[in-house]
Amino acid sequence: MSTALLHTGTHENQTSLAKKKLLPYWLLAPGIIWLTIFFLVPIYQLISTSTQTQGYGIGTYVQTYRFANFMDAITSSKAQLFRSFEYAFLATCFALIISYPLAYAVAFKSGRWKNTLLVLIVAPFFCSFLLRTVAWEQILGEQGFVIKTLRFLHIMGAQGHLTATPFAVVAGLTYNFLPFMTLPLYASLERIDIRMMEASGDLYANALTTFRRVTVPLSMPGVVAGTLLTFIPAAGDYINAELLGNPGTKMIGNVIEARYLAIVDYPGAAALSLILMVTILILVMAYVKRAGTDELV
């Protein structure tokens, strides 16, 4: 009797052990299925499309493994590709310059207003990205107060305009991705132990030196996260260039959109998309490696 009980006991233990081993896979399953359907399959299609050539009739393509598609794409869209990274870089720099003092103030100087300010920083997300960009078109437009003020102050002549300029595109990019810079910066600054600054002051560093030698290095994880979260979407964006720019400010996103929807050149669009992805991946990897943030606590 007792041996029988013992036996079933061990058996049950073994089955529950096996179940335990499978548990992680069950937990991962929804994510794996999701990624397979909506990431791996599309990526495979994208890669496959990028080497196809025109078949019989518009919009039909056959696989011919034509790797020259990539060279063609680069040659024809070099300017836009370069411009994308240039604008994204500028927008990232401006966002960093605006966000750092903002995040610093919220983290260290806001007192009881901290939560209110954080809600205000996130507030733009309550309105759609597209709508906000359209609104910027109005703000910078002929009837907007910005133009009127600049003209009133004679900073800008009667013929001057702000929309349809590179300035408007970079400004739009900066504005739209600002919270992605501010929030990681805030998180990283807020985590800094105030005693680090006190210790720095105690060790003969004045406020500026403390900021340079202690605060900035300790906020580097936030700087890296913020710049990546701003740079990556900004480089692939086409809404800002479309609504706030002119034909001379087209970015790579606009070219890809046009090839897919207007020209119906699927292989060209796919090739450009892959080039954009790989370039960003290489830039990001080089950047993270150089920033060397993994050693920071």
């Binding site: 132990d193 005693r195 680090m196 006190e198 210790a199 720095s200 105690d202 060790l203 202690v214 290095p217 300790l218 580097m220 050693e295 920071l296 606590v297």
Partner: peptide, 12 residues
């Protein structure tokens, strides 16, 4: 100079 509670060494 001060030896802080929990030391406050610069982690970076």
């Amino acid at each position: 100079n001060t030896v802080f509670q929990n030391y406050a060494l610069f982690p970076h």
